[in-house]
């Protein structure tokens, strides 16, 4: 039986881990290599390493950091930040990424998604979309790197389905870092619009939110703040999911010995 995943999100501003609130206020969370090592020792299902300034600064995520983080990281690693050509992706994979998250390039050069999928396979490409509510409460796509957004959310979802991406990371800008719960309506909307696995992001306040996101339709949940600022761990999230009858990968201590 396929287990639902809990994925810690590690956001970088180049070389440090940061945690934003509503994509704005930042708090330094230290060294990404150390953070990755801790998550590895916690036996997490997966890890995401995203450089949120790379596109804005017209550079790629630091591949040395990817390489170092992945050297002791024997779980899947998704990497994103300023990747815009197949060559960039090849380099990131070589540095130790397993999957690639694309965000800004979807606005700059939408047709690149299809190209990336045809070369690296759907399973390698995660489309990351950020969504913000407008004044009248409608969901709108948001570009953290100040790109022109000329698609509605539903048009974007259609486009992602046609591009055959492997997963969709759905991040709520309004709830990011607020620890006030995921936007469950948004998760339901996106996951019922597509058959592509959806990763919920933005707003988790505790284990119960993770369970609710999964029962709403997400295939995986990601979170950062609760792991940085509270005593919750990916395991406590999965224990809650397990309590709600959601299949997860909970290891006994003897399964983690090598």
């Amino acid at each position: 039986m396929l287990r639902y995943r809990v994925i810690p999100l590690v956001l970088l501003d180049g070389y440090s881990v940061v945690k934003t609130i509503q994509f704005d206020i930042r708090r330094n969370q230290g060294n990404p290599i150390v953070v990755s090592r801790i998550y590895n020792s916690r036996n997490v299902d997966e890890l995401m390493l995203l450089d949120i300034d790379a596109s804005k600064e017209d550079r790629g995520i630091d591949l040395h950091t990817v390489d170092a983080a992945s050297s002791e990281c024997f779980m899947p690693l998704t990497v994103g930040g300023g990747l815009k050509t197949c060559e960039d992706i090849t380099k990131a994979l070589k540095a130790g990424a397993d999957k690639i998250s694309l965000n800004t390039i979807i606005f700059d050069k939408p047709e690149f998604l299809k190209e990336a999928v045809s070369v690296f396979g759907s399973q390698c490409i995660v489309a990351s979309i950020d969504i913000k509510k407008n004044e009248i409460g409608e969901w709108e796509l948001f570009s953290h790197s100040n790109r022109n957004v000329n698609m509605s959310l539903d048009e974007m979802l259609d486009f992602l389905i046609k591009s055959d991406v492997g997963e969709i990371l759905v991040n709520s800008v309004d709830l990011d870092g607020t620890m006030s719960g995921y936007d469950l309506d948004l998760i339901e909307h996106v996951s019922s619009a597509t058959n592509i696995p959806v990763i919920a992001a933005g707003g988790a306040s505790g284990p119960n939110d993770c369970s609710r996101a999964i029962t709403t339709g997400a295939s995986a949940v990601s979170a950062a703040s609760i792991f940085h600022f509270t005593s919750y761990t990916p395991r406590t999230c999965k224990e809650d999911m397990d309590k709600h009858g959601i299949p997860t990968r909970l290891l006994d201590i003897e399964d983690t010995k090598f």
């Binding site: 039986m1 396929l2 759907s122 492997g166 592509i196 696995p197 295939s219 995986a220 399964d255």
Partner: peptide, 27 residues
């Protein structure tokens, strides 16, 4: 079901030496 099949899933095997010292049904 959603594709890709992404995530941890259990594997069942019998008389499969490659899985030596691995619990049947491991993820």
């Amino acid at each position: 079901l959603r594709l890709p099949h992404i995530g941890w899933n259990d594997v069942t095997f019998k008389d499969f030496k490659l899985f030596d010292s691995i619990k049947n049904g491991s993820c």
